[in-house]
């Protein structure tokens, strides 16, 4: 099955950027998320034109283009629940006992 790409834009190798990458890795480690999405990190210092194309005003920024709706999250992604809700990716409900 083909996976959707979510992109994390960072600016340089800063503590905030590293934290965001770390948090995103942890989120994608969830099998339910990892089964459908793969993450890609883009350093805007290397590809500054993407900051224009994506109209980025703050970093880190996580962008999901597909599947719709398009979603963008600004910040170091320190709240996993909020990131999943924000991306419109719903983690499986906790198992009932």
């Amino acid at each position: 099955m083909e996976k959707y790409t979510i992109r994390l834009y960072v600016l340089g190798d800063t503590p905030v950027a590293r934290r965001a990458i770390e948090n995103l890795r942890a989120i994608c480690a969830d099998p339910e998320v990892g089964a459908h999405y793969q993450a890609e990190v883009v350093n805007l210092l290397e590809r500054p034109q993407l900051a224009e194309d994506e109209r980025i005003v703050a970093t880190p920024m996580l962008v999901k283009h597909l599947p719709p709706p398009m979603r963008r999250i600004i910040g170091d992604l320190s709240d996993r629940e909020k990131v999943l809700i924000g991306l419109d990716i719903h983690p499986p409900p906790p198992e009932e006992d």
Partner: peptide, 23 residues
């Protein structure tokens, strides 16, 4: 420079505006 923010954007955690300087 088109820096119209996306009003749908969520803020989760710490960020900075260094990208504005870069642009």
């Amino acid at each position: 420079l088109d820096m119209r923010p996306g009003f749908e954007d969520e803020v989760v955690g710490v960020y900075d505006l260094d990208v504005i300087r870069l642009r």
